[in-house]
Amino acid sequence: MMNDLWNEENLYIVAIAVLLPLTAGLVIVQVNPYYALVMRGILGAVAALVYALFGAADVALTEALVGTMLSITLYAIAVRSSLIMRLGIIEPDLPPEDLLQTLRQPLRPYHLRLELVPYPDQESLQAALEGKEVHGICFSQAAVKTPAPQYEIQTRVPRLYQILSGHLPLEKMAILNPAPPLTPANSL
């Protein structure tokens, strides 16, 4: 069998089979989860080619249908809905766009997305934070009468506080330390 594989007639099979570890290595070195998903699709296409070349047509079809199409789609949806910070805001009192940009900046290295969830008033905002509908809430300090309103972010997730603190312009946006230590009850 080994001699069969290495003769000149079957050289192309060996050359194509080498692509499989090559593309698998490309999947491993990806840092961004979305890039890794695209690379997994490439790996699935190459794997289907190798399986078909070795005569395993059924395995190739399963790899293309389940291993590539279904798993990529499900993982893309899972990554998209888990790598997210849901921030509750009060609808008429939106923070300006440049403040949101400075908020997105420290989240970017962690591939976290910022999603704004609007609420009608302060009470429902607090209730959403306590009911764990959102990871954090953002509201303006009504008591401080400065020309530029100061915003405060309150989060129930200590890890988000660690990521965000020290990266925000304090004169425009402050973040409150979530007081209780990390317990299963207030983790993500």
Partner: peptide, 27 residues
């Protein structure tokens, strides 16, 4: 047999691409 599987993979591979592209476009 391999030919039929090749045709199926040709169509399914593009379907996976479209689904993934749609999710990435929303992000």
């Amino acid at each position: 047999m391999i030919g039929v599987v090749g045709v199926l993979i040709l169509s399914v591979g593009n379907a996976a691409l479209m689904l993934l592209a749609h999710v990435i476009k929303r992000s």
